[in-house]
């Protein structure tokens, strides 16, 4: 018996312990309501903060949330205005080098910027990215309910571009704004079906910490500034 137990792999031992442990059922938690209907995500929807039913309301909710989160929102009507806004940012913040990834929207707006631009695609030098003042990316979607910007490693410039440079600029279109997180998860699963990108990040405001005396400081390790240029 003893030798058999030793020969079992850790996985087998742990799974056997789990099956043995679960033979006794546990009571359900003491809930406010008798039970919840459907999945936790569906059930909780009317109880969580509201993301807005219509596109107009969503934009209002999003704008309020971005302000509170200290994400800078720039509303523009078209890509040429977006390009002008980006150039103005570069000048105002005195950025010397802007990194971006290949995409029609990023390429459309970097053409006219006055600082150096660098395309960080495929086996780029991470040391060079570290020296960039800002990273420009597209995004997968935006969540009004929480003010979150969703980026993925497969379509929005990989893992580092949105986190290593000191500022992060996102170019997006208004039709990418969704109501709530539940909507965003449906979207992520439909878009990626069975093959998820290696990273999907929900970015909610610039990097922050409260580790020193619980006082809020922006730019702990990630970008100190987060700017959303919203077209349309």
């Amino acid at each position: 018996m003893e030798t058999l137990a030793v020969m079992k792999t850790a996985q087998e031992t742990i799974m056997a312990r789990i099956r043995e442990a679960l033979r006794l059922p546990a009571a359900k938690p003491h809930l406010k309501s008798a039970s919840i209907a459907g999945t936790p995500a569906k059930a909780s929807r009317p109880w969580l903060p509201d993301g807005g039913e219509t596109p107009d309301v969503r934009l209002t909710v999003l704008t309020e949330n971005l302000t509170k989160l200290k994400t800078q929102l720039i509303r523009v009507v078209d890509m040429s205005q977006a390009a002008a806004a980006l150039d103005e940012l570069c000048r105002a913040k005195q950025w010397k080098r802007l990194a971006y990834h290949a995409h029609t929207d990023t390429q459309a707006i970097i053409k006219s910027v006055s600082c150096e631009t660098w395309q960080a695609d495929a086996e780029f030098d991470k040391q060079k990215l570290e020296s960039c003042d800002a990273g420009l990316t597209t995004c997968e979607a935006i969540v009004a309910q929480t003010g979150s910007i969703i980026v993925s490693s497969s379509t929005n410039g990989g893992r580092s571009l949105s986190i290593l440079p000191h500022a992060h600029v996102v170019i997006a279109r208004v039709d990418q704004v969704m109501g709530d997180l539940a909507d965003a998860f449906v979207f992520i699963q439909q878009r990626n079906s069975d093959h998820m990108p290696s990273m999907i990040s929900f970015i909610t405001g610039p990097s922050r910490t409260g580790d020193i005396e619980r006082i809020l400081v922006l730019g702990a390790h990630g970008p100190k500034e987060l700017v959303l240029i919203l077209v349309g």
Partner: peptide, 24 residues
Amino acid sequence: GAGQPMTCYNTLYAGPRQPGEPDG
């Protein structure tokens, strides 16, 4: 936990760098 609407970064990792991704 912290009195925030959402924590700043909530990130899903599915695996190592995939073909077509620039880093990771």
